[in-house]
Design a binder for these strands. Structure first.
Lengths: 101, 101
DNA sequence: GCTATTCGTAAGACATGACTTACGAAATGA
DNA sequence: TCATTTCGTAAGTCATGTCTTACGAATAGC
């Protein structure tokens, strides 16, 4: 559930494709695998990584498992880049003060 | 300069460490390599990936090259997760409407 | 109980990428 | 010009991760 885990989870292009497919709403593993150039077990393995990272959540529906985006995880990433941007701007401003003030 | 390139660039933990070290301000390649458990050429290779992805920029200073955070690139990532979060919320709301009304 | 469906996990093959050393290029200063 | 410093690139090694097939578990319906 750390940032490191989220970055690692989003490091594979196939995993990002799975993640993007969930953008439009929850889907079963089989439905996710259709349209992707990898096998269903591969998708299942990717979903585990995404789930452990806190980027997707799982819900049971009979024999199916419906995976959905975990908005909290997405929000965490958004916050990370928010703060990163702020810090980068601050350090830039300080570098200007230091060079001519 | 695409999102794909930015995600790929941030997929390596060493590269994220380099990226994080630039958060506090611009640094030379040698200065970045100090304190990291990899060689200077390794850092140089990582910086090339980060630069090609639009996440860092380069400035010459005599024989040195000062790398800094490219705030536009960080802003792009922030926007990506902003929109992703909005889309996920919308699709969630739609799923509620479809299920009970 | 039996079958069909959906899925997760194990084991192993294979490609990808991250690292090292060696080397050459460019800028600085004497 | 020569030496020093700083850096990027090339070549090759090695670890990591991504994929496949095979298999077993869980649920639902008959």
């Amino acid at each position: 559930m750390t940032y490191e885990m989220k970055f690692e989870a989003l490091s594979s292009s196939t995993r990002r494709a799975v993640f993007e497919r969930l953008r439009a709403g929850g889907r079963s593993v089989g439905a996710l695998a259709e349209g992707l150039p990898v096998s269903r077990p591969a998708v299942s393995q990717h979903l585990k990584v995404l789930k452990d990272a806190g980027l997707v959540s799982e819900r049971r529906d009979g024999v199916r498992r419906i995976y959905s985006i975990d908005r909290q995880g997405v929000s965490d990433m958004r916050d990370y880049f928010d703060r990163f941007w702020d810090d980068a701007l601050d350090s830039y401003k300080r570098s200007l003060e230091g060079s001519d003030g």
